[in-house]
Simulated scan of single mutants.
Amino acid sequence: MANPISKSLLSVLIALFLISSTLAISDVPFIVAHKKASLKRLKSGAERVSVSVNIYNQGSSTAYDVSLTDDSWSKDVFDVVNGNVSKSWERLDAGGILSHTYELEAKVQGMFYGAPAVISFRIPTKAALQVAYSTPILPLDILAEKPAENKVELAKRLLAKYGSQISVISIVVLFVYLLTSPSKSGATKGSKKRR
């Protein structure tokens, strides 16, 4: 009878050991980074690119000596006008977020395909720097020739696409208005009867 109990106890101890070793392994930072870029046309005809990089620590421990480097912006094509394409922080706690933004001005027309930003960080239990990459950005059509939008053509396209929905909504709104507003002839008849 002692034999089945000792086997059960041994299997429980092995299971606890495996679970604790799994939890110990997962006690590291897990860095996720999202890079986003948007174009803004200036009145002077120039175009600016606003870039933001958000770095998240989804792990269960702190990342130290966190640095962001985004060298995908060629100096022949872009000038940095606000901020820097690299940034460093002392630490990123578990569950924390770091954000960095900068602005570039485009010098050359054409399609631009940006590479992911590189995030390096240190874990106290490992000697080597750890590296993570941000999401890449969607292709940017820099200084693209955009035809002037004719307002009448835009209204025709919107009416063709959403005309039936606009008609239905207008009829429903008119119906609700007629039901909820008091009729003027009924209001005057009622006031005459009260006198």
Rank of each mutant, 00 (worst) to 15 (best):
M1Q: 09
A2V: 05
N3Q: 12
I5F: 05
K7R: 08
K7V: 06
K7G: 02
L9K: 08
L9N: 07
L10R: 02
L16G: 00
I19P: 01
S21I: 01
S21L: 07
L23D: 04
I25C: 03
I25V: 06
P29Q: 05
A33P: 03
K36E: 09
A37D: 00
K40S: 11
K40W: 04
L42C: 05
E47F: 09
V51A: 14
S52C: 04
V53P: 04
I55P: 00
G59R: 05
S60V: 12
D65Y: 02
T69P: 05
D70I: 01
D70S: 04
W73R: 03
W73Y: 13
D79C: 02
V80N: 04
V81A: 07
N82Q: 12
N84Y: 10
S88E: 10
L92Q: 04
G95V: 00
E105K: 11
V108K: 15
Q109T: 10
G110C: 06
G110S: 05
Y113F: 14
G114E: 03
A115L: 13
A117I: 02
I119N: 09
R122L: 13
R122N: 13
P124W: 01
K126N: 12
A128P: 00
Y133N: 11
Y133D: 06
Y133S: 12
S134L: 02
P136E: 06
P136I: 07
I137Y: 05
L140K: 07
L140D: 02
L140E: 01
A144H: 09
A144G: 04
N150V: 01
N150G: 03
L158P: 00
L159C: 10
A160V: 07
A160E: 11
S164C: 09
Q165T: 10
V173P: 02
Y177M: 15
Y177K: 13
L178W: 08
L178P: 02
L179I: 08
P182N: 12
K189S: 15
G190I: 14
G190S: 15
S191K: 04
S191L: 10
K192I: 15
K192R: 13
K193H: 05
R194D: 10
R195F: 14
R195Y: 15
R195N: 15
